[in-house]
Nucleic acid binder design. Sequence first.
DNA 1: GTCTATAATCTGATAGAC
DNA 2: GTCTATCAGATTATAGAC
Lengths: 209, 209
Amino acid sequence: MKEKDQEKTTRERIFEAAVMLFAQKGYHGTSMRDLARAVGLKESSLYNHFPGKSSLLEAVLAYQLEGFQAASALMEEMEETGPVFNDPVELWIAGAGAFMEKLPPLTETIGLILHNEMFLDDQCGRFVLHELFRVRKELTEKLLRRMHAQGLIRYCDFTKTAAQYVHMLHGLEMENRLRRLEGAGVEELQARLMEQIVHFIDGLRNKEN
Amino acid sequence: MKEKDQEKTTRERIFEAAVMLFAQKGYHGTSMRDLARAVGLKESSLYNHFPGKSSLLEAVLAYQLEGFQAASALMEEMEETGPVFNDPVELWIAGAGAFMEKLPPLTETIGLILHNEMFLDDQCGRFVLHELFRVRKELTEKLLRRMHAQGLIRYCDFTKTAAQYVHMLHGLEMENRLRRLEGAGVEELQARLMEQIVHFIDGLRNKEN
DNA sequence: GTCTATAATCTGATAGAC
DNA sequence: GTCTATCAGATTATAGAC
């Protein structure tokens, strides 16, 4: 159903332009006039596709939620059929990479919008707290427990260690986004991300191996 | 010079109200009208104390910068005269607590403003990147090295471990701020913060002790 | 320093022709 | 669905009386 539909609908073009503008100038800093100019339409035409400005933000949130849930579902599916690792770092890197590849294209940009809006918009705040903290910590803890059961990592407080990992990832993501705005290269930032993840998992390695 | 000056100046009242409003509704979401109403003045009177809205944000940044630098200076001073610890966790908790106590009263609220604005305002972005990431990582790394030299913690990659700690702290702070907006108690969040810090430092402990 | 009055612009949103 | 025209209200900021 995506083969013959090469061109984007007007609604999609408006949505994508809104995502870019919200990420760049903030939700409050973006006017319907800005958006109309970016899409190449008149302001009034936007209202044929979205009932108002706030509905655009809701659509952005819905997109992100769907993306995360679809990626998570694919991960669970793959978990049973995927390869078996006997090294914790290799396992982790492969899993994290697979998950990120499954996320929709606008996910990273919308992540920036959520960061900007999480303390100003209730819905954004709840989304970040639930999807980006609670759910991720639970998944991480489950994975750590399984790795320990397989003898890949040593024993530790898995709940606190999972929290530590998720918090570190958020802090690192924050710094990398700031560095990107200051002109840092994407591959350099990706390398830093990997380095820190490896350092974390490596610290949990079972020394008896 | 602070004894006889009990009452706040109008400029200070405007500044503090701006801090509260910027943190609550965002910089773009706060109008000079909102601010005037909060202070109990007419809009035009605000311009007798600040030349414009943007200068208020600049004043907020200056306040935060001065607060951090003053607290850092006091810490360095205390470092030589302070008590000696033979437990890494005790040392760390005492140091972190002492630093936080030295920060000015509005620091935490301004931290929220910076979080909201760091990707929208260049100056805010540079402030966070430098003061809250680079400087903190350097200080943390220095402290880790000293603790290792004293035999309190085991050897590790101090640069990466310092980065891991600072990133974790930022992620945890983010989650705690969200939880506070959702109604969580301050003492509960403070306990969670301490728990995670202790878990981190405890993991670095020298096992031979 | 504070006020009233006002300027000039921008805001999200609607009505109605085509 | 897109356009022109328009609205009512909000926005930052200034001028000038007191």
